[in-house]
Amino acid sequence: MKKLMLVTALAAMTVSSVQAAGRDTISVVGSSTVYPFATVVAESFGKKTHFNTPKIESTGSGGGMKLFCSGLGVDSPDITNSSRAMKKSEYDKCQKNGVTDITEVHVGFDGITIANSKESEQFKLTRKDLFLALALQVPNPDGSKTLVDNPYQKWNEVNADLPAVRIEVLGPPPTSGTRDAFSELALEGGCKKIDWIKAMKKTDKVAYKTVCHSMREDGRYIEAGENDNLIVQKLVRNPNALGIFGYSFLEQNDDKVQGSIIEGQQPEFESIADGSYPISRPLFFYVKNAHTASIPGIKEYLEEFTSEAAMGDNGYLLDKGLIPLSAEVRAELRKNTSAGTRLVMN
């Protein structure tokens, strides 16, 4: 009986406090790729200012957009992180639900690396090699303009310069942003190098997308889960396998694994920053300007994120593996962010 009363009291307490509450903590959702950077900014923001430390959920870019665009008010997040630009469809949904005034903040870049154990030789790959080795369907090796199920079993069948090692690549599952980016940048990048497939883009866009974005499913590409640390551990145990993960994981584990050279470019900080490393993607976050007035600290959080101390050439985000924007772009960005420049998509 006593317990029942306690429960009732608890429930009553909750209802009253929920009604009274605004929210005094910034709520951030979105990409798991931006998460490591956003959390560091949040922590430093919490220590430096008198505001609460923002709460950051890792929901994936798509999931974050969905929550972000669900409406205005304390129940919805203030900021969403994204490892790709907002899509038109998402923008429209936002507009429809009253989230009309959005500011886009470009954070920097993230490189995707294809690594193997240090015990093996470093791979020198091109995007075309990656496409031929990993796509579901590839051009017929006899040279005719038809597609066949991927017949390649060893790397040297793809490209005679590569070692005669079985193709075995560990990478993230389709739900991951890293996988999306890999499909788009590496597979499609390689796919485009084949002229007649590139020509398909104009005639049959859907077929082109299917060919260029489908991974093979015969066990040569192994979905190793979203956990990049696990992929690193598996690479150490299996020196013949390659693994796909973000640059920050390579940097943290470069005593055990090495990144493959892609089209003559080492996966290094400098080559990703100047754009010469071909598999890198931009990172963003989006802010609801309508919340800036009602939720305390958003303005200061944005200042912290875009400050030189965070995303500058010697900023603490670089230590976490972020590849920075150029100084001019940063200055422009800072101006737009503090002014709350409204994102327009037509």
Partner: peptide, 26 residues
């Protein structure tokens, strides 16, 4: 979620032990 402040009650943002394992493992 990434939550730094230690929760003081049932209405403070919080995470739990298995979630902490999940977040750190990643």
């Amino acid at each position: 979620a990434f939550i730094v402040d230690v929760p003081d009650g049932v209405l403070d943002s919080a995470t739990v032990l298995p979630v902490q394992i999940f977040l750190w493992a990643d």
